[in-house]
Amino acid sequence: MPTVTYAGTQVLVNEEGFFTDPEQWREEMAPEIAREAGIPALTEQHWQVIKHVRHEYELRGTGPTVRALGKTSGVSVKELYELFPKGPAKLAAKTAGIPKPRGCI
């Protein structure tokens, strides 16, 4: 399993770059993960989504899909795609250090 270094700490990720152990994630790693995913800087709204995704994961054991995010994060689907153009559910999960959400909607 590949390891990468974020914020000076080595973490385990899968082939797609998702954390395999969400416990290894720290908030200070998020900006670096986001930069790798093509998001140059994290705004307050990005953080709102990242924290929400993290919270949902802790609650349910899986990250929310885009539709669920649009309904529960306080950020609309349109804005979500402006924040994370290459896939909001996927990139928010990656930045929040949780596994890629599975779901078709």
């Binding site: 899909t65 885009v66 539709r67 649009g70 609309s76 689907v77 349109k78 795609y81 153009p85 909607i105």
Partner: peptide, 17 residues
């Protein structure tokens, strides 16, 4: 299963860009 009705789904897809 949280699959939206067609009007809502079409709107959402437009919102995705």
């Amino acid at each position: 299963l949280d699959i939206p009705p067609i009007p809502e789904f079409v709107q959402m897809i437009a919102d995705t860009g």
